[in-house]
Amino acid sequence: MNDEDLDLVFKSLGDPTRRRILDLLKERSERSLFEICAASFSADGKSLSRQTISQHLDMLERAGLITTSWKGRTKTHSLNAAPMKRATTQWLKKHL
């Protein structure tokens, strides 16, 4: 993992909504944009626009923290914790 990848991971994690999305995908994987919006509303009563969530998902995908796949004709998102683990062993661990 180079510095650029590391930056992307930490930058992605530096936002409460994106951390919340990762929590929701840990509870259940393979969720559509619509389902993530509904789950996020249900979790904290705060309604975020689909466009906002969609942008957060793009950022998380660029950092490798989520992966996408297709369930029928619907695009779904799942958590991928591997970059977090790599960021931990490669840098965070030095200070823990």
């Binding site: 559509s32 944009l33 619509f34 619907t74 695009k75």
Partner: peptide
């Protein structure tokens, strides 16, 4: 198709 892709009813 676009609605189904995003899972929107």
């Amino acid at each position: 198709d676009a609605l189904v892709t995003d899972g929107i009813p």
